[in-house]
Design a protein around this nucleic acid. Structure first.
Lengths: 216, 216
DNA sequence: GGACAATTTGTACAATCGTACAAATTGTCG
DNA sequence: CGACAATTTGTACGATTGTACAAATTGTCC
């Protein structure tokens, strides 16, 4: 195995940073979690920023590819309402999918993106803008073909809200448990996906909408 | 003036932490930003955690009061669709209102809540759960009276998404500018409020909704 | 097996962290 | 003014941080 140590360090860094952010996790903690020596971490990655960059690098490409695959599939659906939901699902599912399936997405990486975008991490911000903006545009256009008459700004805002809701759900799932007194599981990813998809589909498709230009 | 120094330290801490989170900001940085000595910070607040707790403390009560005031006003509206929007607005507006108007809410404090909830900060989490869950429940119930037939879980999920979208918009407004190539200003708070309110109202009220139990 | 590269280990460094505290200063009240 | 409390200042402490590097170990190819 080519450097399983290196892989374990990447995973440890991803796990810890996705839970507590960039600054709250130390290199020594990452090393310990990975069962490696501190020196090995700097040997493989040089700096902490660099480690973060490599964590991002191995996820962005597979995750965007998965998204685009699902988007292409979704666009083949003729019924507009069904297609709308499928497109949104194509956006959401890769962000949740179990971390087991290769490095393509996964809830852990999405949680990392959430935290670092909130912390205003520069390294992460640069990578994300480069890697995801293009894909996001493809989704805006696909949604536009589903919703004739809706302008780009309207769709972009709602897709932006979807990402925010997705981030928050992934990070603060226990809040749902608390608020519903346990009648609802915020950490049930399947349920979260369904709720996110249906809520976004409704917000985009509702005809009597106040914010929907088609109603004007 | 009773200890304007103390006040300036609170403000400096709030400003810096709302931009970069808890761990990325040092006590010395806060002191410098406030034009105070490091010793003064520990004199007034003891520990860093304590400073954070006091930042929260002076905001939660006025902000919740403002929310409840606006909620009571909103509930007087008879037209259901109008009332729905007004209730959502009562939830959103205090989170955005300029930091100038006393300590009641303000975008800066909301951004702080966003970052710390993502970082999983314990101090913040405890305070937030204590201070906001009750108010959130009041909103869920008010929305329930607007939407007969919709169950509590449905409403709670969508209100949860609203909070996530709100957080993300407050933190990453420039993303909207980037994605719309400047045709839309993500930092225009008035526009953001309108978009948040209309999107949430649509997601809650849409009758043909896939996730809406009333459609079943 | 021996030579050379890749990797791991252990340790050290300067910098910065949160906190503590004595001394100096400022404010307050009789 | 004088006494006492409140606040500010300056400095020091031990701990932890990210990074660097020489020595030891492991792997690889001839």
């Amino acid at each position: 195995m080519t450097s399983s140590r290196r892989e374990r360090i990447l995973e440890a860094g991803e796990t810890l940073m996705s839970q507590r952010g960039f600054h709250a996790v130390s290199m020594r903690e990452i090393a310990r979690e990975a069962g490696a020596n501190l020196g090995s971490v700097t040997y493989h990655f040089g700096t902490k920023e660099n480690l973060l960059a490599e964590i991002y690098a191995r996820h962005t490409v597979p995750m965007n590819r998965r998204r685009m695959e699902l988007l292409v599939e979704a666009e083949r659906i003729s019924d507009r309402r069904e297609r709308l939901s499928a497109i949104i699902r194509a956006f959401v599912v890769p962000a949740f999918s179990a971390s087991a399936d290769s490095a393509g997405g996964g809830a852990r990486f999405t949680r990392l993106r959430a935290i670092l975008s909130m912390e205003g991490n520069e390294t992460a911000g640069r990578i994300i803008a480069d890697a995801f903006d293009e894909t996001t545009h493809a989704f805006v256009e696909a949604l536009g073909r589903c919703l004739p008459g809706a302008d780009e700004a309207f769709i972009t805002w709602r897709l932006h809200f979807l990402l925010g809701a997705l981030y928050y759900t992934l990070v603060g799932g226990e809040r749902i448990n608390r608020l519903t007194a346990g009648r609802c599981d915020g950490n049930d990813q399947q349920a979260a996906i369904e709720q996110l998809v249906s809520a976004t589909a409704d917000s985009l498709a509702c005809d009597g909408a106040a914010g929907n230009p088609r109603a004007a």
